[in-house]
Design a protein around this nucleic acid. Structure first.
Lengths: 159, 159
DNA sequence: GCCCACGTACTCGGATAAGTGATGTCCGAGTGTAGTCGG
DNA sequence: CCGACTACACTCGGACATCACTTATCCGAGTACGTGGGC
């Protein structure tokens, strides 16, 4: 079980967009170059964020992406769901209904105990993701590297 | 992000092994046939459980697998870790250290804020998995289908 | 009748192929800008 | 000099390859049982 790298890219990009400021849109190519990522593929992830309403996109020159709402209104869960899709990691295939082990049909109206337990754990994960918003991430990143926002703005302005 | 189907198979197999009783070993082929699964591939998952010390394997005729310890001493986390591997789903690639965005090396001694947040959520998931043991699963399954254990034992005895 | 050696059938275990989704790349539609031409 | 038109460059957006990992399969090493022969 491996989470897509696009999640990490998308999260960093959101913070970078916040540092860039709401006035100017930043193109996928700029965001990708900042961390030396494949631009076209990062664009794919940003499109997913746009579909989820996390960022807005504007075409044409001076276009690009910008945040659709403040960082503190974007949770980790929002970004993960946008990039990874809304499906659960564990998908019950109902194998208990297959083969000689398939019991009476009445027993299958109730949820599979295993699926229920796995879903419960996954909900804990989702709640933990939803409880953290990107502004907290930004604040911690700025404590570690206070000069980062200004460096990004200067780099963007220089091109 | 998708969890391997082997997890579901392994969990069902553990409960089935418990129902079969500790006296007799059950071969991978029998366990697979019970739910109409590919035998050789289920065998692979059972080998992973054996490496993790969850089940023991005995070769030769009348051989097979049996539980290495009681169900209430096996957590969901044990099985998931055995089948999926111990790695986290989110793996920080440290993209902040790449490209023009790479800050001063000193900033990299601290954990990436994003990785830290993602790990925190994943720990909640792992704790929720570790808090549930397979005996609880078995009890719930027996409430839904009380005849299931006896049906399995009869089916195993008939061959 | 009892014991031992042998062959057989069955098991796990790991090495070896397909299928599917993530990863990466490319080109087209659309848009804002700047330059240019005409009034 | 001012305004409108035109061409261009830059952007997103989705369609098209490539790769890794999951899924699936196969065969070999090892073991217990049953059988046959010898004592």
């Amino acid at each position: 079980m491996k989470m897509s790298e696009g999640v990490e890219w998308a999260l960093h990009s959101c913070v970078n967009l916040a540092w860039s400021g709401p006035d100017r849109a930043v193109s996928a190519a700029r965001l990708a170059a900042w961390h030396d990522l494949p631009a076209a593929y990062l664009n794919k992830q940003l499109q997913a964020l746009a579909r989820a309403g996390i960022v807005t996109s504007t075409p044409g020159p001076r276009g690009g992406f910008r945040l659709a709402r403040p960082l503190d209104a974007i949770s980790l869960m929002d970004v993960v769901a946008a990039v990874e899709g809304p499906e659960e990691a564990f998908r019950c295939a109902e194998i208990r209904q297959q083969g000689p082990g398939a019991g009476a049909p009445a027993a299958h109206t109730a949820d599979c105990a295993i699926a229920h337990a796995m879903t419960r754990a996954e909900m804990a994960w989702r709640r933990a993701l939803a409880a953290q918003n990107l502004d907290e991430i930004r604040q911690q990143a700025e404590r570690q590297a206070p000069e980062a926002p200004e460096r990004l703005r200067a780099w963007l302005a220089a091109r």
